[in-house]
Design a protein around this nucleic acid. Structure first.
Lengths: 355, 355
DNA sequence: CGGTTTTATGTAATCCATTACATTGCGCTG
DNA sequence: CAGCGCAATGTAATGGATTACATAAAACCG
């Protein structure tokens, strides 16, 4: 009986066989368990939930772990627990100072909560956006914070682990954190009105993004409130770059319609606008007041320093991350939109209108 | 006898038992294999090495995969293959425009090679640096690109999967990519000398970093070459921030030693210097010429535009990543130091000396 | 002191894809 | 046609930790 004595199973476990030249495999729980004379379960528990093992055992195991220099294999843990503690931060452009400050807020909260941040720069490419979203489907990341106005499709069932930061998607089940762009833009324009300006130009952002539409809306509302007619000749569109700000001013000036102030949809365009204005011999703020949006770090250091709407960049990142982590811990939390406040910061680029 | 007929093994595999409320488990190879009437091995092969399965089978499997919406679990794959295709980018501060452009280069190459980038902002904290390094030990990332002058300890045997970018560590087996800071700084100062300046101030960076020492060395060499005595009263130290540049100028001016030019160890301090100078009624470049280092994006847009040393930021990131990936593919490649060139970009902040 | 909790630990199943090795079937050659 | 080689596929071991369930030992209780 028992005719299977010869069934030579492959037994080249790491413990015995001669070849000491194996490729640098890390230590495993098994080895620690053996060295500490306990079971793998106990080792795992001593490391994960120290309160359930006896004081003596725990200390002993920790001592062995330290002595042998053991670090649990995160891949194995992740596979078993089905969590990666990784979140993807999707943004169009990391070199944009606005985003890089938001990212920093994301990184902070993530780190505090034991998560790490995977950088997903998309260059606004749908393909790349999708590629990062697929990492969630592949369980290589737990969730996504997206700073673009689109929410990528993730072929998983259940609630999408996605939070929208800075941007937001209308009518959706997606959590978002952003500022009230309409109100903020209106505040900026109100301020210009207060200073006596009536011919206020506007440099818009790409109309594909809802927040740009909102900023334009705010501009229009403020004008209406002040009884000023909206003049399309005083509007130009830019792509958020400094160069776009310059071009926009060129365009506005070429139209021949005078203006004594210009509200820009972001700081970089405002910086471009200031340059273009001064290269046309127009002084800021004496001849033209300029207001930006975002309050990037350099806004404070332009000459003159830029009056702008300060977005709580760090808080946007922090809040978005907090939301995402909440969502990851409990997929049943209801979708929320959180609106942070953005305040006008008056600096040197604005002055009372001089007729 | 045989008292084990009752040994109810837990059989709650996903196929049968009633509760349809299970928590959104993803599809597995097994299910695909079953649906396609092949073995798991064949499915895996069809996806990983399509050339080894027959044309018909491959098409059939792909069809099933698509129909059922299957995405292989990356954690499982990673565990098995012992690679994560993740690299950590360690940097002190993501909001620093210099680093964010380097990061972009890193992200690009990583993406081209099928890697993703884990953002490791350290705030120059050793603890956080180490925490990210430990992710490599925990096999949660394959390697590290560090932009700080330290190389964290990673308790793994064999070659450390680390590349140093922008900074470098002396006498080490670590791969690095950086510019010749001595030569670049000397070029900048040479240029000021050519313009007739002899009283050239210097704003140094934190002396803990070798590249700062190098920049100072370059400054000194250029002066020596020109037969100008090095005057310690004309040097100040800053921490790379705009404010530090302002403070440095205050300090230099307070010392009473006249200077007609100042070379700053980075652009942000140069921007601060320009502000401080003009708030003291000194015109740039008419009264004082200013040169920076890095050529961050805003350097082009200051008033006057900043003359500076252009570091190939994108290339630094790209090259570092290329090196790291090479190293990951073949740990036997010899350690290399790669020096990229940095060129002087002359803009408006420098002018001939006017006695 | 027998019986019931509680506490500490062990055993083995599980997560899911990859892949070494085994097997099957077919075409080709001498 | 036996025999060999190659191509295609299958079976099951493997990676390393977590954890459900089982068990043993200790504490508690009337």
């Amino acid at each position: 009986m028992s005719g299977d004595g010869s069934k030579r199973k492959r037994q080249r476990g790491k413990g015995d066989s001669g070849a000491g030249t194996q490729p640098a495999r890390g230590k495993t729980v098994k080895e620690i368990a053996a060295a500490a004379n306990v079971s793998v379960a106990t080792v795992s528990r001593a490391l994960q939930r120290p309160e359930v093992v006896s004081e003596a055992t725990r200390q002993h195991i920790h001592e062995v772990v330290k002595r042998l220099g053991y670090t649990p294999n995160a891949q194995a843990r992740n596979l078993r627990t089905a969590r990666t503690r990784l979140i993807v931060a999707l943004l169009p452009d990391i070199a944009n100072p606005f985003f890089s400050e938001v990212i920093r807020g994301i990184e902070q909260v993530a780190h505090e909560s034991g998560y790490s941040v995977l950088l997903g720069e998309t260059q606004s490419s749908l393909v790349r956006e999708q590629a990062y979203a697929d990492m969630v489907a592949a369980r290589q990341a737990d969730g996504i914070i997206t700073m673009s106005p689109r929410v990528p499709a993730i072929p998983i069932q259940g609630r999408l682990p996605v939070v929208n930061a800075c941007e937001y998607v209308k009518d959706s089940q997606i959590c978002s954190v952003y500022v009230d762009n309409v109100a903020a833009a209106a505040t900026a324009v109100d301020y210009l009105v207060t200073l006596g300006h009536r011919d206020i130009a506007f440099i818009a952002g790409p109309p594909t993004s809802p927040i740009c539409v909102d900023r334009e809306l705010g501009y229009q509302r403020a004008l209406q409130r002040a009884g000023i007619a909206i003049n399309p000749v005083l509007s130009a569109i830019g792509d958020f770059s400094i160069e776009a700000g310059e071009r926009a001013i060129e365009l506005l000036l070429s139209r021949g319609q005078a203006f004594s102030a210009v509200f820009c949809s972001n700081d970089e365009m405002a910086i471009g606008a200031m340059r273009a204005l001064s290269s046309h011999g127009l002084r800021v703020p004496e001849d033209v007041s300029v207001v930006g949006f975002d309050d990037i770090r350099f806004a404070r250091y332009t000459l003159p320093a830029l009056t702008t709407i300060a977005q709580p960049k760090n808080a946007l990142g922090r809040e978005a991350t907090t939301m995402l982590i909440e969502l990851l811990n409990d997929p049943a939390v209801p979708p929320r939109k959180r609106v942070l406040s953005a305040d006008l910061v008056v600096r040197g680029s604005t002055a009372p209108h001089r007729p």
